[in-house]
């Protein structure tokens, strides 16, 4: 083995905890801070340029999208092989919820001194909001969301992630079926909130989807009345003699909160798309 390869091999055996720490350390020098202020002052005159540039961002607040096809996943045995495609949005700007805004009950979901995650379900989205003291104003102002019948939905699932210091993020998800009384017209809404404890380490928000390899998918940037979204139309291949799964998935960021809306309709996929567009236009 060459000296070069040997050095790379040895340094690769350093404690992973130290590798993680090295990724967190970033020190700003006084000169860099001053330079940042000087640049910010100079940029005021460039505001119109910034606005022009902003419309070139991918719809929904993300800056870029990547596609990966046929990534092979080996799931526990040669008899079960799984290929997956991936579309991957990145570059969104987050907002951070102050930890004090959460209720004491919500904060208690974090295991003191440990990193982890907990599931908690509720009978409705509103109950989940009350529990956490998080209100998704954008959703409640949406003309479609508030009309969704409470009787046609599953439990509202939430997942809380936490670091040793406390809760870092909360994920909400709910599924409605037979929307507007249409058989097979289904809707899922997911919302992902970061708290001030989430260390993004200079990274932007990301979102995406992971349909099975061999899926047909097309994507578009949809510019609605007030917001824009990245929309994927996915048709997964049939599995085990079942029908193929087909759906629309919209990804967007509103006020620093990531949303994912998925619609499907067995009888008529166009109704799924129309529902999705109505929801986006309803913001």
């Amino acid at each position: 083995m060459t000296r070069r390869d040997w050095a790379m091999e040895v340094i690769g055996r350093v404690d992973p905890a130290l590798i993680e720490e090295a990724d967190r350390v970033r020190v700003s020098s006084p000169w860099r801070r001053m330079r940042a202020c000087v640049l910010a002052a100079a940029c005021i005159g460039l505001l119109s340029v910034s606005v022009v540039m902003a419309v070139n961002l991918i719809a929904g607040g993300y800056k870029s999208v990547k596609y990966i096809e046929d990534g092979f996943l080996h799931l526990g045995g040669e008899a079960y092989q799984y290929y997956s495609d991936l579309y991957y949005l990145e570059g969104g700007q987050p907002a951070f919820l102050p930890l004090d805004q959460l209720t004491e009950e919500a904060k208690a979901l974090a295991v003191e001194g440990e990193a982890g995650g907990r599931n908690k379900s509720f009978s409705s989205w509103q109950r989940a909001e009350e529990f956490y003291n998080i209100t998704f104003h954008d959703l409640h102002n949406n003309t479609i969301f508030d009309q969704l019948p409470p009787s046609n939905h599953s439990m509202t699932s939430t997942y809380v992630s936490s670091s040793p210091e406390g809760i870092t993020s909360v994920w909400f998800s709910e599924h409605w079926y037979r929307v507007r009384g249409v058989p097979g017209l289904n809707l899922s809404i997911e919302a992902y909130v970061l708290t001030e404890l989430m260390d993004m380490e200079g990274m932007d928000l990301t979102s995406g989807g992971c349909p099975p390899s061999g899926s047909e998918y097309s994507t578009e940037e949809y510019y609605g009345k007030n917001i824009s979204a990245f929309i994927a139309h996915v048709k997964e291949p049939p599995r085990n003699d079942s029908s193929p799964t087909e759906y629309y998935s919209a990804h967007f960021i509103l006020n620093g909160v990531q949303y994912k809306v998925i619609t499907s309709c067995e009888e008529d996929i166009q109704q799924a798309r129309e529902l999705l567009i109505e929801i986006i236009d309803g913001f």
Partner: peptide
């Protein structure tokens, strides 16, 4: 999602584990 949560998802082979991993660390 925390690293602990991510490891749990992968350990339990839950749907969305891979997407969560790619989202967090891609």
């Amino acid at each position: 999602m925390t690293d602990g949560g991510l490891v749990e998802l992968i350990w339990n082979r839950e749907d969305g584990a891979l997407a969560a991993l790619q989202r967090a660390y891609g």
